[in-house]
């Protein structure tokens, strides 16, 4: 379609009319999608942006208060705490996930028995609802009755109180995020591994490269585009973690490990400060944009595109 239109734009009268007609059809055909996009995304986005400059409790009309919300976000100690928690989850989560998933993918890319079965096994948690995952893991972490601590007890190891101590809670949440997300990364890695031509390995072997050298000098460089993609997607996802902490670390209205999105929820829906909550959401969006921008900038230094 794009071709016809551009041809029409430079064409004669007849072509112009035809192209206009075709363009009209084009608009007509994408109208349902665009309408949905406009109503559920663009308008909502615009409304949210406007409301972020308002004091709004969701019960009475919004009152415009300029940059007050954003100024408050800047000074808000609780927001900062939530941000620190979020980063403390995100950084180990992403690093460990990229490494574990690569190991898994390489293991499951070799000729072992029941390969497809294992691949399915590791991918299953990806398809499970986060709330269900959180609920199950909460039981696994139970200090008195949970299997994890009774296992540690049997070997006389220290038994952490997992979810009720903010420090161990970070580890607990990271473990669950890893468990539930590693399968996705593994599948993407597998796809990446399978694009590496076998000849490269043969050539490397002929030149006397051992397994480690083949990995370091062939596999790793050729996987950099995959690693880059996964880290961008992973960080965007991880900075928005909510369901898991909502289900796992909350107890009677309080949360040992509030994250940024949890804080947005709390401010908006519990403390009746929806305008403020929305401005926090925009700040988070901005941060994600900055993170992603930096990643795209840095990729030039380390990502190899063949």
């Amino acid at each position: 379609m794009a071709e016809t239109v551009s041809a029409g734009a430079s064409g004669g009268v007849l072509g112009g009319r035809r192209s206009r007609q075709e363009a009209a059809w084009g608009y007509l055909l994408i109208a349902p999608v665009m309408l949905g996009f406009a109503v559920f995304f663009l308008i909502a986005l615009g409304a949210s942006f406007y409301l972020s400059f308002n004091k709004w409790d969701m019960l009475t009309s919004p009152v415009f208060n300029g940059l007050d919300n954003y100024r408050d976000v800047w000074r808000d100690g609780e927001f900062r705490e939530a941000l620190v928690n979020t980063l403390a989850i995100t950084i180990p989560h992403i690093v460990l996930r990229l490494i574990c998933a690569m190991g898994l993918a390489m293991a499951l890319n070799s000729n072992i028995r029941f390969r497809s079965f294992y691949r399915m096994l590791f991918f299953l948690p990806v398809l499970t609802m986060p709330v269900a995952i959180g609920t199950i893991w909460k039981w696994l972490y139970d200090p008195a009755f949970g299997p994890i601590n009774s296992f540690l007890r049997r070997f006389g190891l220290p038994e952490p109180e997992w979810l009720s101590n903010p420090r161990t809670a970070i580890a607990a949440v990271v473990i669950v995020l890893l468990w539930s997300g590693v399968g996705y990364d593994m599948v993407i890695y597998l796809a990446g591994l399978q694009t590496i031509p076998r000849e490269y390995y043969e050539a490397a072997s002929l030149d006397g490269a051992g397994a480690w050298q083949r990995f370091r000098d062939v596999t790793l460089p050729l996987l950099t585009p995959t690693i880059f993609f996964l880290s961008v997607i992973g960080i965007i996802y991880s900075l928005q973690v909510f369901d898991l902490v909502y289900v796992m670390t909350r107890i009677d209205q309080t949360n040992q490990l509030p994250t940024v999105v949890y804080y947005i929820y709390e401010e908006g829906f519990r403390n009746f400060r929806m305008g403020y909550a929305i401005s926090v959401a925009w700040v988070l969006l901005l941060m994600i944009l900055v993170f992603t921008f930096i990643q795209f900038r840095l990729q030039r230094r380390w990502v190899n595109y063949v």
Binding site: I43, L45, G46, S61
Partner: peptide
């Protein structure tokens, strides 16, 4: 974006004062 903004404003004024 302008259209979205205008529509947002319309949507806001249309739905909000109903509450109180």
């Amino acid at each position: 974006l302008g259209a979205a903004g205008g529509a947002s404003a319309l949507a806001l004024t249309g739905m909000l004062p109903k509450i109180g």
